[in-house]
Design a protein around this nucleic acid. Structure first.
Length: 462
RNA sequence: UCCUCAGUAGCUCAGUUGGUUAGAGCGGCGGACUGUUAAUCCGUAGGUCGUAGGUUCGAGCCCUACCUGGGGAGCCA
């Protein structure tokens, strides 16, 4: 008999027919005559109830059906006599694939703390919460590809190993084949990178944006979607050393087009989750965050506020609030300022634009005022900046002047600069952190709990 | 990295002013129950009190350092 997945089984239950299901035992209840098994195969958060009369099966077999064990069950799908489920399987045959010692298996029927589950990341996908989160993470990844594909964007694979540290987006991880206990030195006593694998210093990427721009200036509209790495010593519930990022980059988009895309994109993803992840969302709404549904709908139903940095500073200055960090034009906004705007003043997502050039990256398009650049930050309740982007500076002279002002290594960026020399075009793009999106989509409070195997300072287990 | 809180049974926690033999719930194990729903009921085992020093007649409790984790901040996505 062919195995049927529990998701499929419950979607249109073939009551009266014999079925074969395989999965992991969540709980077992019962007495000496009859036992009830809640079986889960990961295809859905919902379990199928298996009913087994002990007289039909050996005592040894029944004893080995414990929480966490893996079994295959053949039996008739029948309407349930009990409350709580519509159908159940009257077991005719049970095969135990994998026993699970109840004395040492760390997952129990009762709930566990997120901190404890993080220590057993190899087993936590077997919990309701993590299976729901991981299914949703998949759904979001798929929806991201679907959204861009449907819009005619091309998925560009930007490199993970990079020879440039041009963007300065953070500390980088070095990539080398040197024996670190015996690094070849040059005549000045510095590492002789000409002898290293790439013949020059190499790092893990902190962003695919610069290469993404190269793609956009040929293919029109592209997006990247891959892992990035930051060696920052950041210990917060919103930072990872390895995380996934989506970076669309579009030729002929100005900042308004960019904002329109960002807002439409994020609303599409939320709508996709509401339409396709209802079981998992319902579980998360009930067990993790009672306000989850409401918040998702709220974002879908409301236009994002759009305003300039300068106006935002004015609002903050006249708010009458006492700030821990001072507010003033030219200073970067702190978490407390962003939270005030999003969570108290406007009470909806906010896109701030036109930041002072001094606090933004070199590649952002310079405004005519000589002070600000065409940047945009999308601020969300609870997580702060979920998207950061800008229109890019397409003018060669302005760009190279800025690079020199900031003391960046101009010769490492020759390829980036050449796109401004040869058929330059106005273009824009932004970056969205997948895990930050997942925090918002699931109601989870720590970024380490929305990725299967988090990498953080002092932690690369699993 | 800074600030702050915490670390006691497999898990979640209590533990009085420093004082005899460190407790509970859940989970596990044994038993009872003919349909359970985080089943219920009875019984039972389970501890180097994060690590290393120190103070004291005496430390789970006080002091110091370190480790690990949570929250907040910085950096950022």
């Amino acid at each position: 008999m062919k195995r049927i997945k529990i998701k499929e089984l419950l979607a249109s239950p073939p009551v009266g027919s014999d079925v074969l299901v395989k999965g992991w035992v969540r709980t077992r209840r019962g007495n000496k005559n009859i036992i009830f098994i809640a079986l889960n195969d990961g295809s859905t958060i919902r379990n199928i109830q298996i009913v087994a009369e002990t007289s039909r099966f050996g005592e040894d077999l029944i004893r080995d059906i414990t929480t966490g064990s893996c079994i295959a069950v053949t039996g008739r799908l029948v309407e349930s006599q009990g409350q709580g489920q519509d159908v159940e399987i009257a077991a005719a045959e049970i095969v135990i694939y994998g026993k699970c010692d109840p004395e040492t298996y760390p997952l129990q029927k009762k709930g566990h703390s997120m901190e404890f589950l993080r220590e057993i990341a190899h087993l936590r996908p077997r919990t309701n919460t993590f299976s729901a989160v991981l299914r949703m993470r998949h759904a979001m990844s798929f929806a991201i590809h679907k959204y861009f594909n449907d819009k005619g964007f091309y998925y560009l694979h930007t490199p993970i190993v990079t020879g440039s540290d041009a963007e300065g987006a953070g500390e980088m991880f070095h990539v080398t084949t040197f024996d670190l206990a015996n690094v070849p030195l040059d005549s000045n006593g510095n590492p002789d990178y000409s002898l290293d694998f790439f013949g020059k210093p190499a790092n893990l990427t902190v962003s695919g944006q610069l290469e993404g721009e190269l793609g956009a200036l040929a293919l029109g509209e592209i997006y990247t979607f891959g892992p990035t790495f930051r060696a920052e010593n950041s210990n917060t519930p919103r930072h990872l050393a390895e995380f996934w990022m989506i970076e669309p980059e579009m030729a002929f988009y100005d900042l308004n087009d960019n904002m329109d895309l960002a807002e439409d994109f994020i609303k599409y993803l939320i709508r996709y989750a509401l339409d396709n992840c209802s079981d998992d969302l319902e579980f998360l709404n009930n067990m993790i965050d009672k306000g989850l549904y409401e918040r998702l709908r709220f974002v879908v139903d409301n236009e994002f506020v759009r305003m300039t940095y300068t106006d935002a500073v004015r609002i903050l200055e006249s708010s009458g609030r006492k700030w821990e960090y001072p507010v003033g034009w030219g200073r970067d906004l702190q978490a407390e300022h962003e939270r005030f705007l999003v969570e108290e003043h406007f009470r909806k997502p906010v896109i701030l634009t036109d930041y002072p050039a001094e606090i933004k990256a070199f590649y952002m398009k310079q405004n005519d005022d000589g002070k600000t650049v065409r940047a945009m930050d999308v601020l969300f309740p609870g997580i702060g900046e979920i998207i950061g982007g800008s229109q890019r500076e397409e003018d060669y002279e302005k760009l190279i002047t800025r690079i020199r002002e900031m003391g960046l290594p101009e010769k490492d960026l020759w390829w980036y600069l050449e796109t401004r020399k040869f058929g330059t075009a106005p273009h824009s793009g932004f970056g969205l952190g997948l895990s930050r999106l997942m925090i918002f989509m699931t109601g989870m409070s720590n970024i380490r709990d929305v990725i299967p195997f988090p990498r953080t300072p002092k932690n690369a287990e699993f």
